[in-house]
Nucleic acid binder design. Structure first.
Lengths: 161, 161
DNA sequence: TTTCGTGCAAAACCTTTGCAAAGTG
DNA sequence: CACTTTGCAAAGGTTTTGCACGAAA
């Protein structure tokens, strides 16, 4: 999966701009997200940082803080796990999520403007789309039994990667 | 939003078809979902049923059981709360969710087949889309009396139609 | 120095599980 | 009668909170 197009320094500059201190914990978290992109859950972030990381609680607090100032964005794949990635603003890209391995790829399809325009015409404002596509990725599609039901695969698709 | 197009009896018949017993708890839950459509969380269902309802645990167990047999469908609006509605149909309809009052309306836009086809060509299987649009509904966009709680406002929210 | 952020422990929260009793077909 | 389903209590797991100490500006 491609790394973020933002550099760590850019992101750390943004930290200062929004009035958050550049602590070791935030550096580590942002560094990870710049390098590996994610999206990752708080637990995954904590696990990946290991020794040079920080307390799980600190990850929880920081993803909330960083999302609040739009430095990172929260993704939701319908399994009650919040995952975070660097917020490369501009494009709303969307995800294809593997129901088995939870692997994520990005697609650049967007909801047609006319769909949103027709809603605006009815009086809706501040529209924002959330689109995720679920399925089995090519790897998991190979050599497996299809008998798994949707809800089964959802269950298996939790933090195990 | 309009009530479900299914009648309670239809739904109860389906219960038998899939081999689930028609208990009072299931009747009550399905009756509610047929009447008010939802989608509602387990807690909301439990609260709405009040005295003639059942234990919260029973709601939890039954929404899982009913979803497993596709009698109801699970919605996810990205807030870690699973909500359920009668599974009326074939088509994947999608929701417009008001960020303020949590009112829900349905749109019938679908992801173009060609997007999914191109993924299938790459080896993806069992694709399923989740699309929700968030924004302010016409009511909330206009004036603002906004001290409403989620569960209260949700029933009053009949944006459009 | 002042303010913000962190770690640890504990609380809070929500969902699931175990089991005996009750209900359904 | 066989076997599901339920209610209650308790367990489980995750996220949040309180607070004193430590780090950043």
């Amino acid at each position: 999966m491609a790394r973020s197009s933002k550099s760590l320094n850019e992101v750390l500059d943004q930290l200062r701009e929004v009035g958050l201190k550049r602590t070791q914990a935030r550096r580590a978290i942002l560094d990870l997200l710049v390098r590996e992109h994610g999206p990752f859950s708080s637990e995954e972030i904590h696990a990946k940082l290991k020794s040079h990381g920080c307390d799980l609680v600190t990850v929880y607090r920081n993803v909330i803080a960083l999302e609040k100032v739009s430095l990172i964005r929260r993704c939701d794949f319908g399994d009650r796990v919040y995952r975070y990635e660097i917020n490369d603003s501009h494009d709303d890209h969307h995800h294809v999520v593997c129901a088995k391995c939870s692997g994520v790829t990005v697609i650049d399809y967007c909801i047609p403007k006319k769909v949103l325009d027709s809603l605006k015409k009815k009086g809706y404002q501040n529209l924002e789309c959330r689109l995720e596509i679920f399925g089995l990725c090519p790897q998991c599609s190979r050599g497996k039994s299809l008998e798994s039901s949707l809800s089964d695969s959802r269950k298996n698709a939790s933090p195990n990667n």
